[in-house]
Nucleic acid binder design. Structure first.
Lengths: 342, 342
DNA sequence: CGATTCCATGGAATCGATTCCACAGGCTCA
DNA sequence: TGAGCCTGTGGAATCGATTCCATGGAATCG
């Protein structure tokens, strides 16, 4: 591999001048710049990012820590973050915690050792010691979930507002007996979404008995188990799943039991997937604004890296009604509380 | 951030000794090691991977270049590669070409600048100049697709053998009029799969007219377009899609046209998705052995990094019959050529 | 015309960890 | 007892790029 020294020699200048010519320092004669550029091209010179970063104390690299890269929601999040970061000349190192706190800690250390300029993290479970230390030591932004570490900005979706709209939608369609496949209560999203369902049902004068709530872990299998359990606890006419994969599991169970989704039972969940529109019936979702989240997170992180105040942001969610909740007018009449909605 | 120098000072030893104590060099007294270890813990010392790598000329980092991180097949591939690499103490930098040759080239340079020890690449399109240069300059393994660069090992699935099994399956079920939503013919997988279908149909005495083949780009939308086109060209009783996303698109079109999949029309594709078993009807797939591919790629790359001979590997595929191709015995009788299959 | 400013350039220090080399002190063995 | 060895340690060079500082020459000004 050719070094800058080689390039300088080939161009007949000093390494200092070569360095200036490669960057866009104005203090280089056009002639020297030309010679250096040509020499670099001829030698196939690639700058050594390690050496540069060691000297400049800047890597232009950020870490992205996710709980599960295989969940389409996080895949999309990674895609959007990487895309925007690339446009800004930043490289993204993706770390997959694979749903294990220990892996998360391991990756945080890896990122720190690689001297990333900052970290965007979707934390899992309770805030670990390593997570606190890292968030305190270098620019950090939490995204999607809030681990409750004060002083670190958080970019989240408006889960409460979104769930309100979803519950209103279901109630308007005549659903009264709602079951919830909740997310893990160790995550802020799991808690917020469940609480919002409870609160909004109460607002409609409806009750959410404990037997109608089963906690899953955001994975497909837990959606299966939770739904089986829900079906054993009295009659329901709607199920809300706290994420897409658990909704998939719920759909499997409902099908196996010969329950007509969209008719006998409404099904809705948080987080859209491209092919949710495809499944029969198409699934009603509460979609997060993923590009919006990614953009806000990067903006906030960049500010923090530059030493400015970094804001927390709440991004609106978007209800997409599809066939899985049935049509308005079916079954019971539209709720008289219609007018009370926000 | 504490440096090794700080740790050494705190432990009352020289940086040299501190370095030796942090690694597992035997030439350190137990007492010195103890003191250094404690000092490091107290200072929250994290080794600076940049400085270490600059000196040792080893980053213990490999690059993984993918054409589309949002395709579940590549997501799973990334997951498996990262998992195995982590077990071996390697960090993975994922690059997403986002289906653009230009992005691929850009990422190859990024990886080279970061001094990765080696690259695992799923190349797209024709082999670019940058791809050739990179493959020549540092340890490289191609995975899934073969760009035809001699001297660089390739880890691929046995597309030909797999497709043979799939075609045999369809023919055995009485399907005779097969349409193909082919992959891009600029990729080796696209070419191999189409050729294998043609050859195996011929082996059964069946023809594949040009009008029954439409080329897509491995994305959902192209599956939609291709299937619509196929339906306009005479009667078919089966469609083979070269990947999962295009099969999704095909399924959408078939549904919209009221065509009963699994009865009027068989549908099968390459690459399984967890929830393909969920769709109604469940989709028959030719699944790749993703952990097998990941393991073989990493092994081959590691050998190459260590200066040993790195093998090319062909990994077997696995046919998973589901409801989308209908049951045996339906329609025409089982082909008399049954006995001729390999 | 002499003094001052400006500009392009090169030498050398620096980032943080590793490692070659030299060396001190304790040991063994003849 | 002295020659030789082994072990643990520290000084200093090194990896490759950046950047501070100094310098020489050209341009500008009064």
């Amino acid at each position: 591999m050719a070094t800058l020294r080689d390039v300088a020699k080939a161009a007949g200048v000093s390494p200092a001048t070569a360095s200036r010519a490669m960057g866009d320092s104005p203090a280089v004669s056009p002639e020297a710049r030309e010679r250096v550029t040509r020499a670099a091209a001829e030698l196939g010179y690639q700058i050594n990012a390690l050496a540069r970063s060691l000297r400049t104390q800047r890597t232009n690299t950020i870490g992205l820590l996710l709980p599960d890269v295989r969940n389409p929601f996080f895949t999309e999040l990674a895609y959007q973050v990487d895309k925007i970061a690339a446009e800004r000349g930043l490289t993204v190192m993706i770390g997959n915690a694979d749903e294990q706190a220990e892996q998360q800690d391991r990756y945080l250390d890896v990122l720190a050792r690689h001297q990333v300029d900052g970290i965007i993290a979707v934390p899992q479970g309770a805030a670990s010691q390593v997570l606190r230390r890292t968030a305190g030591a270098l620019p950090t932004v939490f995204m999607d979930r809030d681990p409750g570490i004060p002083g670190t900005p958080t970019i989240t979706s408006d889960n409460r507002g979104g769930i309100f709209a979803l519950v209103d939608h279901l109630v308007r369609l005549g659903r009264r007996h709602i079951g919830v496949v909740a997310g893990p209560q160790s995550t802020s999203t799991g808690r917020e979404r469940l609480l919002a369902v409870t609160d909004r049902l109460a607002h409609h004068g409806l009750d959410l008995p404990p037997a109608h709530v089963v906690e899953g872990d955001f994975q497909l299998d837990s959606g299966v188990a939770a739904t089986e359990q829900l079906l054993g606890h009295g009659p329901l006419d709607a199920i809300i799943a706290a994420d897409n994969l658990m909704a998939m599991g719920a759909l499997m169970v409902l099908r196996r039991n010969g329950i007509q989704v969209g008719h006998d039972m409404a099904l809705a969940c948080v987080d859209d997937i491209e092919w949710f529109a495809l499944v029969e019936p198409a699934i009603t979702v509460l979609a997060q604004d993923i590009p919006g989240l990614a953009l806000a997170a990067l903006d906030s992180l960049t500010r923090q890296i530059n030493g400015d105040a970094a804001p927390s942001v709440v991004v609106p969610m978007h209800l997409i009604p599809r066939a899985s909740c049935g049509e308005a007018g079916r079954g019971m009449p539209t709720t008289p509380k219609e007018g009370a909605h926000g």
